[in-house]
Amino acid sequence: MRDRIEFDHHLDLNTGYSATDWPSEFVSHTMTSELPRLRDVAPEVAVPDLPDAEVLAWLIGRPTREGLPELPAWPF
């Protein structure tokens, strides 16, 4: 699988690439590692009910919408 940073930075380039364009394998793999870390460092933060790619974007500091819970700085 390509490097996580490569997928993250695609969003930063403002070329129309979004979190929903991330490969499902990347999203699944990264969510599996990042959600437990969030629960360890900020158990009071409720994970929003969003599609997995949007939750992941929120987790890594690239939220897709306003009004989501604040997070500690990533990486956790």
Rank of each mutant, 00 (worst) to 15 (best):
S33V: 10
L35I: 14
A42C: 05
I60T: 10
G67H: 12
F76H: 14
D3N: 14
H10Y: 09
G61V: 05
T32G: 08
L11E: 01
F7V: 15
F7D: 06
D52N: 05
H9I: 03
D21P: 10
W22T: 13
P63C: 02
F26S: 03
E66T: 09
V47R: 02
P48Y: 04
N14D: 06
T32Q: 12
P72A: 06
P72D: 12
T15S: 08
P23T: 12
M31L: 14
A73N: 05
W22M: 08
S24Y: 10
H29Q: 14
R62S: 07
F7C: 07
E66A: 15
N14R: 03
P23K: 08
L68S: 04
H10Q: 13
T30E: 10
E66K: 11
L68Y: 01
H29T: 13
R4N: 09
P43D: 06
P36C: 06
R39P: 09
S18T: 14
E6L: 07
S28N: 14
L13C: 13
S33L: 09
E70S: 15
P43Y: 02
W58I: 08
S33D: 14
M31I: 15
V45I: 06
H29R: 11
G16H: 13
P75F: 13
M31P: 05
F76N: 04
T30W: 15
D3Y: 10
R65W: 02
W22A: 13
D12A: 13
A42E: 04
F26T: 04
A53W: 01
N14I: 01
W58L: 02
P72I: 04
V45F: 02
L59H: 07
S18E: 12
E25D: 14
R62E: 11
G67A: 13
I60V: 15
S24L: 13
P51Y: 01
D8R: 14
H10G: 04
P51L: 00
P23D: 09
L71C: 06
R2G: 15
G16F: 09
A46L: 00
M1G: 14
L13K: 15
L59Y: 09
